[in-house]
Computed example of a mutant assay.
Amino acid sequence: MSSPPPIHSGADAAQIASTCASLKITTTEFAELQKRATAAKATAYCRYSRFRVGATLLCADEAGDVVYVPGANVENASYPVGTCAERVAFGTAVTSGIKTFRAIAVATDISPPASPCGMCRQFIREFCTMETPVIMFDKNSDYAVLTVEQLLPMSFGPDALPPPGAPGY
């Protein structure tokens, strides 16, 4: 079993700057991801679990402009039918024509930060590169960062499928 990722202080400007440099995002983009993922929690419909999750995707539109796409968890009386914040955000982005994802932020009301669930990890894998960073914020704005590859090693993705029309399929 691997060790958990380091937790960084959300109040340490030097650490945030170092994180941003390694992720190839600006400190402004980082701050927006944190602010928007945290704000998205307020829109969560989680009357059964009472576990609010907000997510925000840092994207680029067709013109290359920065776009932020939020999502929040939406539960259902048939408990396993709910949709996680990450999947809400990706569904919104994809159906809006966005196909370039630079980073993902997830915010929860617990500490330490929580990572995306297994189903969300597979969903993220569908649309992101293995190097895409997932920034996880806790209730204190402290954070951990893992790449898609670190969250889902030896993953199965669209590149593993035969091309449409391939013989035998």
Rank of each mutant, 00 (worst) to 15 (best):
M1W: 05
S2N: 10
S3L: 09
P5S: 10
I7M: 11
H8W: 04
H8I: 01
S9H: 06
S9Q: 09
A11C: 09
D12L: 13
A13E: 13
Q15M: 12
A17C: 07
S18Y: 05
T19N: 11
T19F: 09
T19K: 07
C20K: 08
A21W: 03
S22V: 02
L23R: 03
L23T: 08
L23Y: 04
K24M: 03
T26M: 03
T26L: 03
T27K: 10
T27M: 10
T28F: 05
T28C: 03
E29L: 06
F30D: 00
L33C: 08
L33V: 06
A37E: 06
A39T: 03
A40N: 12
Y45N: 05
C46G: 07
S49I: 00
R50I: 00
F51H: 15
F51P: 00
R52G: 02
G54E: 11
A55P: 08
A55R: 01
A55E: 10
T56R: 06
T56K: 09
L57A: 00
A60P: 02
A63D: 15
G64A: 00
G64L: 00
G64S: 00
D65L: 13
V66I: 15
V66C: 09
V67Q: 14
Y68R: 08
Y68D: 06
V69I: 15
V69A: 02
P70V: 06
V74K: 01
A77I: 15
A77H: 14
S78D: 14
Y79G: 01
Y79K: 14
Y79L: 14
V81Q: 15
G82M: 01
T83H: 03
T83Y: 01
R87H: 10
V88S: 04
V94E: 07
S96D: 10
S96A: 15
G97D: 06
I98H: 07
F101V: 07
R102A: 12
I104G: 06
A107K: 00
P113C: 00
A114N: 02
A114H: 04
S115V: 04
P116Q: 05
M119H: 08
C120I: 02
C120Q: 04
R121T: 05
Q122N: 10
I124W: 12
I124Y: 10
I124F: 11
I124S: 10
C128V: 08
P133R: 12
V134C: 12
M136Y: 04
F137I: 05
D138V: 04
D138H: 04
K139F: 01
N140L: 04
N140S: 08
S141Y: 03
S141L: 05
A144K: 05
L146E: 14
T147R: 09
V148T: 10
E149S: 15
Q150Y: 03
L152W: 07
L152S: 13
M154R: 12
S155V: 01
G157N: 15
G157H: 07
P158G: 13
A160Y: 08
L161I: 06
P162Q: 11
A166D: 07
P167K: 07
P167W: 02
Y169T: 15
